[in-house]
């Protein structure tokens, strides 16, 4: 990570009393300290809600799709829930990513102002941003582990491929969280801005990115929109890994898309955090 990236907006050069990696870990420790006291508050959002979605879609829709008579065409003969599970995992991870990188980031600048406290120490603005993003990745990964554990008794897990699905889901979440975080640093009225983000980006993405049915079931003109979303790429990877149907070049393409989005997002986060904190 570049700590002394002297752009015009960042004239402040600080003596690196802690290494960049260590600084990022220290920021994560800060969030962990908070989380240890407050993890109960996240149970409804990260366990109960996904469980309800799983029951509603994994079991309820399964009945409908079974009766519809085209299940084999959709899943290649597997139960609907096995086909659905890695996609729900990815969708859930993306939702956590979006929530954790929106309001908490605004709070860090505006309400609790923890970023100002962090950058009053040897930790730099860019390190604070990357540290928070890394913490969000940890949250996604741990929630994902819990989610997989819930999937098992529902018969949603076929084999160890789900571990790769979990990693793909986390990458997908981080790739979306980074630009959302950068967005969160510039919004002035967070209520309407995030409302629009959730309703016009997040919700359509969860509905149209191939989670519940293949993108091919949509009209031709909608499909490119779905292909442009990170969730579609993440879902393809996660589902391919879980069902053992990954193919080399498409996978490389999905991976490249998500990595590029993550890297660009991280650069934006670092730039924005500097611009906001070193004004």
């Amino acid at each position: 990570m570049t700590t002394v990236d002297t752009t015009a907006t960042a004239p402040v050069v600080r003596s690196p009393a802690v290494s960049s990696w260590r600084a990022v870990l220290l920021v994560m420790e800060h969030f962990w300290t908070w989380y240890r006291r407050n993890w109960r508050a996240t149970i409804v959002g990260s366990v109960v809600e996904p469980l309800l979605f799983l029951v509603a879609f994994g079991l309820g829709f399964a009945v409908l799709v079974n009766n519809g008579g085209r299940l084999a065409e959709l899943t290649g003969g597997l139960p609907y829930i096995v086909w659905l599970a890695p996609a729900l995992l990815t969708m859930n991870t993306l939702q956590i990513a979006t929530f954790e990188s929106s309001y908490p980031v605004v709070s860090g600048f505006k309400w609790q102002r923890i970023y100002w406290a962090i950058t009053a120490t040897p930790v730099t603005a860019a390190q604070a941003g990357v540290g928070h993003l890394s913490w969000i990745a940890v949250r996604m990964l741990t929630s994902g582990v819990v989610y997989v554990a819930i999937l098992v008794p529902f018969g949603g897990v076929r084999d160890g491929g789900i571990v790769v699905s979990l990693l793909a889901a986390t990458l997908c979440g981080a790739a979306f969280a980074a630009p959302v975080m950068a967005f969160a640093t510039v919004v002035r009225k967070e209520g309407p801005a995030f409302g629009a983000l959730f309703r016009f980006v997040l919700i359509p993405m969860t509905l149209f990115s191939g989670t519940f049915f293949p993108v091919d079931a949509l009209p031709v003109w909608v499909r490119p929109l779905a292909w442009a979303t990170p969730l579609w790429h993440g879902t393809e990877l996660a589902r391919g890994a879980a069902l053992g149907s990954l193919q080399l070049w498409p996978s490389v393409g999905h991976l490249a898309y998500l990595v590029v989005l993550l890297v660009v997002g991280m650069l934006l986060v670092q730039r924005q955090f500097r611009a906001r904190l070193y004004r």
Binding site: F61, L64, G68, G69, P204, L207, F208
Partner: peptide, 15 residues
């Protein structure tokens, strides 16, 4: 969005 996604997309498989 729900109507379009579920009705059109999932509807294909539900009948």
């Amino acid at each position: 969005f729900y109507l379009f996604a579920m009705g059109q997309g999932l509807g294909t498989y539900v009948g």
